[in-house]
Nucleic acid binder design. Sequence first.
RNA 1: CGGGGCGUGGUGUAACGGUAACACGAACGCUUUGGGAGCGUUUGUUCCGAGUUCGAAUCUCGGCGCCCCGACCA
Length: 414
Amino acid sequence: MLQSKLFYKANKNKSAEADSVSHDLLTRAGYIDQLMAGVYTFLPLGFLVLKNIESIIRKNMEVIGGQEILMPVLHSKEIWQKTGRWDALNDILFKMKGNGEKEYVLAPTHEESLIPSAKKIIFSYRDLPFYVFHIQLKFRDELRTKSGILRTKEFIMKDLYSFHANQADLDKYYEVAAKAYEKIFKESGIGKITYRTLASGGSFSKYSDEFQMATEIGEDVIYICKKCGIAINKEIKAENPICPKCQGAEFEEKKAVEVGNIFKLGTKFSAPFNLKFTDKDAVDKSVIMGCYGIGLGRLMGAIVEASHDDKGIIWPKSVAPFLVHLIQVENNIKVAKACQKVYQDLQKENIKVLYDDRQKSPGEKFAESDLIGIPYRVVVSERTLKINSVEMKERSKSKIQLIKVKQILNFLKP
RNA sequence: CGGGGCGUGGUGUAACGGUAACACGAACGCUUUGGGAGCGUUUGUUCCGAGUUCGAAUCUCGGCGCCCCGACCA
């Protein structure tokens, strides 16, 4: 991508409205743009990151047997009345009328729309278990949005739903899903500071698990047992002053942001929809369900909270919008040609590269490159070309090394 | 939803009730080219509505919007 053509504009002035680091940096570097409170556009840079996060999640869902589907966002009132959530979730539902009196809701989550389909597919224990997931927009009229894309009214979420014949099978799969979640956060570059955290099950079951990334901006508090290392959330800590696993009494307290949450739903949703199957013993039983969510935009914001310095973002390679930021210093034909050659060679090898071909001062290009946070910076100038070299610098490191033009590919390929 | 703060060019800010200004950006020209370059020219602003006043960005009322704290967060 030529930077001169990229639909973005970096801003050196600190944003007045953004007080969280991720909001400020993502806005100033041109990843996102706010339309109104809690509603954002993902500009090309931001959308590239979002798509990378999406593919990490998709891959790991497929590994544990998830089949991807696409569901409606527009739901009828009736299915939401069936589970009682038309009223129960009233405060956060975007409700509206169509032509005439028919009422609709913009889906805040998708159990209600999935189960009618499942009813037409599940009849026998032979049809179980199965796992479907979807990645799409959800709407919740949060009374208070905050911290940029960490908490919004409209957000892209991955939800996986599992259907089981019995509790034991759900319990087993739940652990498989939890492991997949740990992998997702590890691959997203926040594995070391993300804790599987025991939480209450809300209205579904006794316990659920949250995945909490430790960060000062977080709105949650987690407690990490100093003895066995497990994490529990505030509610659990209130109910159990000692560690529920090892009885330890000392905890490390950390602020955290919830990047994922998994639940055992049991028959909470299958019951109202009368979703049943005939078991081996010829008895009709309710299907047992689990659900597993991750907010993609929130994860993107969390990664920035976890990985930045005073100059800008430092993207983990796995989610970075580009792998290489190619910077042309000096606007003469010789340097431009050398840059174009490097640009084309990298692209031929499917290496994603942003080429700063603009007529700007070197200082401005470097400053903006640090702000945008692409993992590798390659600088081509008259000075380096004299020795057939370019400068290679990793965004996360301070060391700059000269490498031969011909060695660029070898350097970048692991 | 309760409490607080704030709305001024695209962005960040200034202006006692008395001619709306500065920096960044953007555009053009010339000079520059290794950490947000220089000079010159240009561009563009008081959230909306009412009120007080000779006169309102400034005061009052109403609305709308944004941010923060809290509550909430299957």
